[in-house]
Design a binder for these strands. Structure first.
Lengths: 111, 111
DNA sequence: TGTTTATATTTGAATATTCTAATATAACAA
DNA sequence: TTGTTATATTAGAATATTCAAATATAAACA
């Protein structure tokens, strides 16, 4: 086990495992945005944004087209949003569970 | 942006971003397995397996119960498999696309 | 051509993750 | 109690990822 496919899958998930990259995908839900629009939307330094866009491009989560000097990014496969929403179901439940565990602790147990 | 929720989501995906952890989840598809059964199934050192199980537990992807000296792991929320299968649709398409790009390259372009 | 604007890439330091090896714990049996 | 089996945790080295700053590129325009 831990086949080449598992390694590829791992890269796939790793690419999603960064808050800026998730914010980028979220920002692109409504449609394409230029890099500077993205920069404004998620409040991130130009070079950092560019580096994260490169990773998303590398895994084909996004593509881009140039229009004069502006580069517009869009998600490559909109099914990714279904997927992200399904993820949300799961981690929201996971979070809730953690919350419940916290609530059951007495103050002395927490300290 | 890059809210606390985005940070949490990123942790969620990061937890899935390792081939051993994906192999563990796959191995648990059919039902619970003990640590040594997992070890046999995915051919991994005891301590490494244990460390990855700890991460999966931490994010509540798996839970475990003890039976005498044996510890059985199971996935915490079976919806994770729907989610992983949806992921597969997406990255298989992404892979195919990369393949097609490769095919279009002439040998000289590759070298 | 030179300048400006928009974006990408590179480099090295800072940080985080993973692995290996060793040690710890928990339950049970002799 | 001591030993054994199954699993977990810890510590430090090895590796990978991220960030910040500087530099590079590409298109458009004066």
């Amino acid at each position: 086990m831990t086949s080449p496919l598992h390694l590829y899958k791992a890269e796939f998930f790793k690419t999603l495992g960064h808050s800026v990259r998730l914010a980028i995908l979220d920002a692109l839900r409504e449609g394409p945005l230029s890099v500077s629009e993205l920069q404004a939307a998620i409040q991130t330094e130009q070079s950092i944004l560019s580096q994260h866009l490169a990773k998303l491009r590398g895994m084909k989560f996004v593509s881009c087209r140039r229009e004069k000097t502006t580069i517009y990014y869009h998600v490559h496969d909109r099914e990714v949003y279904q997927f992200l929403d399904l993820a949300k179901n799961i981690y929201v439940r996971q979070l809730q569970q953690s919350q419940e565990m916290l609530k059951e602790l007495t103050p002395s147990e927490i300290a």
